[in-house]
Design a protein around this nucleic acid. Sequence first.
DNA 1: CGCGAATCTTGACGAGTGTCAAGAGTTTTC
DNA 2: GAAAACTCTTGACACTCGTCAAGATTCGCG
Lengths: 210, 210
Amino acid sequence: MTQVAAPKSPRRTPADKHDERRKTLAESALRTLGELGYARASLREIANNSEFSHGVVHYYFNDKLELIVYCVRYYKQTCVHRYDGVVAEATSPDDLVARFGDKLVETIIEEAPMHRLWYDLRSQSMFEESLREAVTQIDQSLEDMIARVVNRYASLSGTEAAIAPPVAYGMFDGIFQQALLGHLNGREGALEDLRNQVVGLMPMLLGPKA
Amino acid sequence: MTQVAAPKSPRRTPADKHDERRKTLAESALRTLGELGYARASLREIANNSEFSHGVVHYYFNDKLELIVYCVRYYKQTCVHRYDGVVAEATSPDDLVARFGDKLVETIIEEAPMHRLWYDLRSQSMFEESLREAVTQIDQSLEDMIARVVNRYASLSGTEAAIAPPVAYGMFDGIFQQALLGHLNGREGALEDLRNQVVGLMPMLLGPKA
DNA sequence: CGCGAATCTTGACGAGTGTCAAGAGTTTTC
DNA sequence: GAAAACTCTTGACACTCGTCAAGATTCGCG
């Protein structure tokens, strides 16, 4: 057990230093992971792109898997509230759907490596049992995120969503993945397509007006 | 160049033997790939689960990547016509959607390892340039496959599809992936959910009746 | 049969991997 | 300011990987 409890002296930084370093390490590890993917990112390469040496990983994490799971959890944690602003500020159904589409496109442009890492990890979890718990949790939080958007859209439209949250998430995840792939392939129009698809799709998710 | 042209004597088996062996090799390689995934399936492991030794791979393929791309292409080739029967035999919109849903569930049950391999490979293509061409082609053929189903459904309903093929493919691919993940996670109900989702979703893809 | 080409096996190579122990360096504590 | 605890580096370990060359084996044709 490398973990330290630090029972006494909760003054300043007893062992939160540990957590801070873990975050620092995670942030630089995410750069490498986003560049190379789960399988090809070695601990040495990760360490090279950080301010530490390759041995330090085993001081803060038990093994490579724990590091990677920590990283993706850390990233998705901030990622899950990306559309909270959209939900809060939207004034009409059309406004919401426009902002939502813009935000989707924006995140592909700005964080494509992170998104492909997520899809990589989720695929790996189909083979690697030990990844499934984390992936399932993250997937659930993403589904909730989409549900908030769709529900807000329905409420602004004065009706209710005609589809269940898992279906909505599955659909948006599917076309998002497609747009990401297209974008990485250099296919121009991939992002514009995504925006239009979202605009076209959203109204179909609503039930009949009350 | 390991490739052999065999210009003359197109009698019996001049160099189609080569192609046949490649297929045989691909078939047993697919078993291992479906079990371990792209990154963890070594050539030695692949060869162990076949009737050959590990060196033979380089007699029929230039490198590991060529083998794997050949394998997935080989598999998806047969896979793309999975719903042709459904399209041909369906007698009514409801009949088609029921058959389609059943077939989706069936293929998850029977070929889950192959499907997760496909998603694995598609994710890897986001990192590995050399995979993109094959992935793009396969993705396109899958989109066409879905388009045939949706168009047939629309035609049986006496109307036209309200969404473009890429959107339809993205949506179904998304919920299919979700169901596959749930199934591999041992979540009971994952497959039943998929069936119901398809039944509920299909009618929403249609435009107003003519 | 016998010879040459096609096919396959074997064994080795160098590079790269995760892991970990030993110790150097740094900070904290008394 | 010495001792203890924490933090980090270094270097080695055992192992796996893709690749390939050299040779054994099998096959097909004259």
